[in-house]
Design a protein around this nucleic acid. Structure first.
Lengths: 140, 140
DNA sequence: TTAATTGCAAACGTTTTGCAATGGT
DNA sequence: ACCATTGCAAAACGTTTGCAATTAA
């Protein structure tokens, strides 16, 4: 909610961020998305209320949010890279190859796999961003 | 080996495929790659022996091999989509976010996770193509 | 005041497409 | 001979960048 966003904004300000109307609106739209959203869709939503905002500003703002740790970037292998607020927490994605729906999967669900990959392959699986493709319950 | 490739070629021919020199060479190069390779790298290898081959032919041939089930397409979230022969078998990919190395992971390693996702989310995880990002043993 | 940020337009890298010419079957 | 396939050039796509103008601090 609002307090959530204000906390994020204050953190960003502490890191020297300038809060422009464009950035404020982008944060609101990103928060309202309540999940992953791509740069162009975000821009389409913002341009309705702020007709002069440019797509490059959206891209640059998302990049900067990512660098500051406030947003997370996920390439699900669809055409466009997805973003969400880091405050949404670590999670992976279940991606239906039929209908395209994207479900969030809590990080903990992959704990056993992480342990196994570490023990057997010395591979330290990331706790975020994974795109697991398959068929959702509706499409099976 | 050769018999492997010939079997594939015969299968494709049965489906009405025309075996052009370009296609034969692409299949050889794809086989020689012994793993994932992207369209442009494939083209760079082929153009040395066949200077007039075009990149669009490589793309179109890979697309057609994919549609016929002879090749598998994997978007690892790197810039370029990767391909390998379907005869290489089902497997997933461990992708190091540091050094970029890609390790193959047998499908069976994900069997427990598949069962769990099916039971808990009704989600039928695919047996192929998964890109699991993390850190390889060398980079940890 | 001044350095960060913006909008625009142009560039980028990968992939796709239209079309006339070529070549397997 | 026929139609799938090819090479070329151009377009499409998502994304990044250079630059002069603007603006939050």
């Amino acid at each position: 909610m609002a307090c959530d966003l204000n906390a994020i904004i204050n953190q960003l300000r502490d890191k020297g961020w300038r809060l422009t109307p464009q950035r404020q609106m982008l944060l609101e739209a990103l928060h309202a998305a309540e999940g992953h959203i791509d740069a162009e869709t975000l821009w389409e939503q913002m341009v309705r209320r702020f007709p002069t905002i440019s797509l490059s500003t959206v891209y640059r703002t998302l990049e900067s949010l990512r660098d500051l740790g406030a947003a997370t970037e996920t390439d699900l292998g669809l055409g466009r890279v997805q973003y969400h607020l880091a405050s949404h927490g670590d999670h992976h994605h279940l991606l239906c190859r039929q209908c395209g729906v994207v479900l969030d999967l809590p990080s903990e669900e992959l704990a056993p796999l992480r342990q196994r990959l570490l023990a057997r392959y010395g591979f330290d699986l990331g706790v975020n961003h994974l795109a697991l493709r398959g068929l959702c319950s509706g499409c099976r």
